[in-house]
Design a protein around this nucleic acid. Structure first.
Length: 406
DNA sequence: GTTGAGCGTT
């Protein structure tokens, strides 16, 4: 959305009109940051439309008042639809384009990773990183190369440790790297990647989890657990069956795992202030729906801890922080599970859940609190057995999968 | 000739 501010769709352009021509024409109105002319991918034949991005969106009104003749054709300039919104519902757009673009529900998918497109082939990771470090602490840099030919693929990723940094970067849709313009967008959350690299602290693993967790939220809001669920299963360490329930909680679970790896405290650090437990609590299969919104906001940290224990049962669980605290001490996000259990009062034994958490943590991270964890494992298992399919899976590797299959 | 293209790694 933001990136489409100041962007005009230019339809009906001549096949002779190039990016440069567009820029030349529209620069009469203000600073043009970028222009594009869309062509067929294979043939390169112009498709008759393009886009112009002004640095200052407030200019658009004036631009739209004028008639524009470029290369002898009167072209049609309109505010561009946002691609994000389009994804949400093509049909509604057809019916009511404007409402769609203004709705603002696009952009819910968030990661702290930025996709950077249009990289010059010569760009090194070093320069790439140096440039973006000006915006915040860069935690990861990836420049993609073709696996077979080794040629640069023209895009890469940059990860930050704060949303603020990401926002600063995204404030401008285009950035100038060594005289070439590159485009930045929030990275699409790829499927959850397993947390490999157990022995060393692995940021990537961590990121991956986060992404997946966040990704699924919006999706499930839409009513679909499916996508997430499937990915969750394939990924070790993720698993979380919760997907099954449709609840997505699995994501949290995975998070917890991560925190374990980092040490209990980590959780706290990440804790997303915004939506504390509530999200979690809602989680219980029983009361899924309502809780969603909260979750989305929350990100992970909150999960943290969750209510967990306490949570059990009652829906309100979310509100019982105290329970969370207890778990928090353990340092495992798993409390959250407790929360799950909550859905069914009979399960409501927090202790058990906590245990699970511990275990999971240890699995992920060799060094993590091993002992406690292993001990608890058993309990975790039982938990699964009890029919909470999803949950168990997260914890254990193969085992848990089996449980799911049952 | 009228609404876009690319999304990963150990």
């Amino acid at each position: 959305m933001d990136s489409d501010q100041g962007k005009l769709f230019i339809g009906g352009i001549s096949w002779d009109t190039t990016e440069d021509k567009l820029k030349e024409h529209f620069s009469n109105y203000g600073d043009v940051m970028h222009t594009s002319v869309m062509r067929e991918k294979n043939t390169g034949k112009p498709r008759g439309f393009g886009f112009v991005v002004f640095a200052d969106p407030s200019i658009l009104d004036r631009v739209l008042e004028d008639k524009h003749v470029i290369d002898g054709r009167t072209v049609d300039a309109k505010k561009a639809f946002s691609r994000e919104d389009q994804q949400i519902s093509a049909t509604s757009r057809a019916g009511n384009p404007n409402s769609s673009r203004n709705s603002g529900n696009g952009g819910n998918i968030r990661t702290k990773k930025i996709f950077v497109g249009g990289l010059p082939p010569t760009l090194t990771e070093e320069k790439f990183r140096q440039y973006f470090e000006a915006y915040g602490h860069v935690t990861d840099v990836v420049v993609m190369y073709d696996q077979n030919t080794g040629r640069p693929r023209g895009f890469g990723f940059i990860s930050f440790d704060t949303e603020d940094a990401v926002d600063r970067v995204l404030h401008k849709p285009f950035h100038d790297l060594n005289g070439k313009q590159v485009e930045v967008k929030r990275a699409l959350p790829k499927d959850a990647n397993p947390g490999y690299g157990a022995s060393g602290g692995n940021q990537n693993a961590y990121d991956g989890r986060m992404d997946s967790g966040r990704y699924m939220q919006p999706q499930s809001t839409g009513g679909g657990f499916p996508a997430y669920g499937s990915s969750g299963y394939t990924a070790p360490g993720y698993g979380y069956g919760p997907a099954n329930n449709g609840i997505g909680y699995g994501g949290y679970g995975s998070y917890g795992g991560a925190s374990a790896g980092y040490g209990g405290p980590a959780g706290a650090a990440y804790g997303n202030p915004n939506v504390p437990n509530a999200a979690y609590a809602g989680a219980p299969p029983g009361a899924p729906r309502n809780s969603w919104p909260a979750q989305a906001a929350s990100g992970y940290g909150s999960m943290g801890y969750g209510n967990t224990g306490a949570g059990p049962g009652s829906a309100p669980a979310g509100q019982s922080p105290s329970g969370a605290a207890g778990y928090g001490n353990q340092g495992y996000g798993y409390g959250g599970y407790g929360g799950y259990g909550g859905s069914d009062s009979s399960y409501g034994n927090p202790g058990v859940y906590g245990a699970v958490g511990g275990r999971s943590g240890s699995a992920q991270n060799n060094n993590a609190s091993g002992p406690g964890g292993s001990e608890l494992q058993g309990s975790g298992g039982s938990y699964n057995g009890s029919g909470y399919v999803g949950y168990g899976s997260g914890y254990g590797g193969a085992q848990s999968r089996q449980v799911q299959q049952q």
